[in-house]
Design a protein around this nucleic acid. Structure first.
Lengths: 252, 252
DNA sequence: CCATCTTTGTGCACGCGTTCACAAAGACAT
DNA sequence: ATGTCTTTGTGAACGCGTGCACAAAGATGG
């Protein structure tokens, strides 16, 4: 789900596939764990297992970065950690603002994974004047009025939106206008952004719905397969009684 | 197309592509909004715009569900809402347990998007005995010891893991052993599950790293493109001075 | 009843991502 | 040195997802 690829078709080695980029953080995490255990080298097979991917895929992914392995031995853990970090841009400091300090926003502010990888919470912003000044995760919340100034003063290019859905687009527009070019959106809305701005969305509700789909499919197959031998564990979850929200509309 | 179903061997849910399933919740959300505004019908073009996708893609997605549109008119909003809800399994009630009631777990418990679509928080579970009984989002937290009993008593098949990374696999194992077959994982770890169990992961850190990659790439292209005309807005974020964490390991 | 207009449903082609399978590269022992 | 053994790096085939472009289907108006 990359952005519009209207630019040049990646002339040279700079053509790292999006799918590969999405896996690099996974490798990095596994490698960091190995590094902390002072493991000097690792084979593609081992690392792939740790990252939960296919070893051939991992090797191909690494091949996009360069030939960093040694045949017959594997990959140097420390060196690979550095290469991936550099490729992901984690060797530099990324100031981040979080907008919308509700339950989720506060949780994000407290999340340790931020600081661990070059991401620094530059500011917490909320529209509620009552929140202003109140410290969350050791950082005083600032009012939305300050948004533009904060972004410009801190050179922020990454913004996190954790507001209610209704406010998300408006916040997004202001972030973009102030210079933010990457947005992580937790609000359940489709954000409209101009060319050149990246948006990634995290939507809890969608994830659950996808799980429900597969869950239903599993239940259906199971029921069809063992129609005469129902699972003993089943209590009363399969009853269609509480189907309160029935169609109310008939097919044409 | 007009010649009945001889075309597709798997008439039912069998043939719905994963990519399509992932978009159905998006369509559903847009349709629900239209429904609340009492809009009777919608064209693929309009709906696609609202959902942020290509209209041809949307039509193809819907074609997997069946021919629910009317040529020359569009799609009946209410009817489509029902069809997608049913396909996703949202016409039934899905009890969910959340394990790990820290900042994130509490935020999830308070998240309104849960209840809105057939998902019901059946229980909040935490390993800290001090949390037991304490109400979060109106639901008393229960101790991990109760996990198996809760799952069986409520017929829970979907579990949400919001524990620290170190505890995630253990919690996962217990959930699966107790009968959970779908897991939404917020812990930054690769979960190992047996065949037949679905896992979806939401990883804030990974999302940020992916954004950082693109951000870095954008900065690089920009710098290369206007090497002689640096953007005036740039403060001092591009200096490579603070590259404190240098390799420490050299390439072989 | 026919003509026209709108919008769906889909055949087709293309590109990306995944996986297999293997030759090449290097380590290591003799 | 030479041979063997391990593991990487990648060519090639395949499958999935996307988007175009258009014919068919139905609405609508005369």
């Amino acid at each position: 789900m990359a952005t519009g690829r209207t630019h040049r078709p990646a002339t040279r080695s700079r053509g790292i596939p999006e799918a590969t980029v999405a896996r690099l953080p996974l490798y990095l995490r596994a490698l960091t764990a190995l590094s902390e255990r002072s493991v000097p080298t690792v084979s593609s097979e081992e690392l792939a297992a740790a990252a939960g991917v296919n070893s051939a895929k991992l090797r191909k992914d690494f091949s996009y970065l360069g030939s960093y392995g040694t045949r017959g031995v594997g990959y140097d853990v420390e060196y690979l950690v550095y290469q991936i970090s550099r490729e992901l841009g984690l060797t530099q400091d990324w100031p981040v603002v979080i907008v919308g300090i509700g339950n989720l926003g506060a949780a994000l502010a407290n999340y340790g994974g931020f600081a661990s990888r070059g991401f620094r919470v530059a500011a917490l912003i909320d529209a509620d004047p009552g929140m202003a000044g109140k410290p969350v995760a050791g950082i005083p919340v600032q009012h939305t009025d300050e948004l533009e100034k904060i972004i410009q003063d801190n050179g922020v290019s990454i913004g996190v939106i954790a507001t209610p859905a209704g406010a998300a687009q408006q916040v997004c527009d202001r972030l973009v206008a102030a210079g933010v070019t990457s947005i992580l959106n937790f609000a359940p809305t489709v954000l409209n952004v101009p060319e050149g701005v990246d948006v990634r969305k995290v939507d809890l509700s969608i994830e659950l719905q996808i799980l429900a789909f597969h869950e239903q499919r599993k239940a259906g197959e199971e029921a069809a397969a063992e129609a005469a031998v129902p699972a003993a564990a089943r209590k009363e979850s399969t009853d269609q009684g509480p189907d309160g929200d029935v169609p109310a509309v008939m097919p044409a």
